[in-house]
Simulated assay, not measured.
Amino acid sequence: MDWLERTAELRQWTRGGARAPHKPLLLLYALGRFQRDTDGELRYSTVEDDLKRLLDEYGPPHRTTPAYPFHHLVSDGVWEVRTDRGPGSPGSGVRELRSLGATGRLAPELRAALRREPSLLGRMARLLLDLHFPPSLHAELCGSVGLEPGPTEPERLTTVVRRRRDPRMRERVLTAYAYRCAFCGYDGRIGTLPVGLEAAHVRWWAFGGPDDVDNGLCLCSLHHTLFDRGVLGIGDRHRILVSPRFAGRSPAAREHVTALAGRPLIGPRPDARPVAAVHRSWHTGQVFRGGPCPAAAP
């Protein structure tokens, strides 16, 4: 059985590019727990808060329940659920999962394959990360689920991930924005080499975002992470949005985040294409956390 193919083909609700990372997040969490205890089960009532936190931090902006993936991941052949009544999930209702003592864990065949081939776990984790989340969040997400995926050879995944990133995108985007962060204007270099500047996808590559300049922003490392976490966004007339859910009391938080609200993007150059409306709309609906903050006082 090809577990990488099965991982890549998790059945998910989808419509118009909407994000639904519920199953990938549960599977990453289960892989992390498997690393620490290969025979352990996950009791729903015990892990519910952990899964809620993951969905809140890394899922789409709208509210959802961890009961959905806990039940539905069974249909993908990588997960099993038992209750006090025996094998089988009682459904996707929170009350049933709690009252019947539902527990879940990786399917027996998958657990056996992971024991035979320990490197499989890292390849599965890397595949889930690449297919559902931007690179800026990978290390943080692994830490959140207690996962140590280890090194993975990219060529081992090319037969499953048939789309390849364009390595030229970074240079094209940084050039279009004159090597300055589009949010804060940072333009650090060591000699002639830019440092701390990255090419961010507005519509994530994992969700069909093209490697084109009009789907890119040159951002410093801080603002790239905040953009991918939904703290920052792009509104009408290419003005910066700041999530009302962001909280920071320090002068640095105000200067580097809150004060950005309402400011126009810096760049791109006149001969480069600005961020396309279709990509801005996707980010606002699928990543940005809530409505915009009021513009900072001048």
Rank of each mutant, 00 (worst) to 15 (best):
L4V: 07
T7S: 14
A18L: 13
A18G: 08
A20P: 00
F34I: 02
F34M: 11
D39C: 08
D39W: 05
R53T: 11
E57Q: 14
R63F: 01
R63P: 00
P66R: 09
Y68L: 13
D76S: 03
P87L: 08
G88I: 01
G91T: 04
R95T: 14
L97K: 05
S99H: 00
A107Q: 14
A112Y: 01
E117G: 03
M124I: 12
F133M: 04
L141V: 01
L141P: 07
L141Q: 06
V145G: 12
E148Y: 04
G150K: 08
P151T: 02
R156P: 00
T159Y: 14
R162K: 15
M169S: 06
E171L: 15
R172E: 05
V173H: 11
Y179G: 08
C181R: 02
R189G: 05
W205P: 05
L219W: 03
C220W: 09
G230Q: 10
V231P: 02
V231C: 10
R237I: 00
R237Y: 00
I240C: 07
S250H: 12
G262K: 05
G262A: 04
G267H: 10
R273Q: 14
P274F: 03
R280N: 02
G285L: 13
P292E: 12
C293H: 15
C293A: 15
A296K: 03
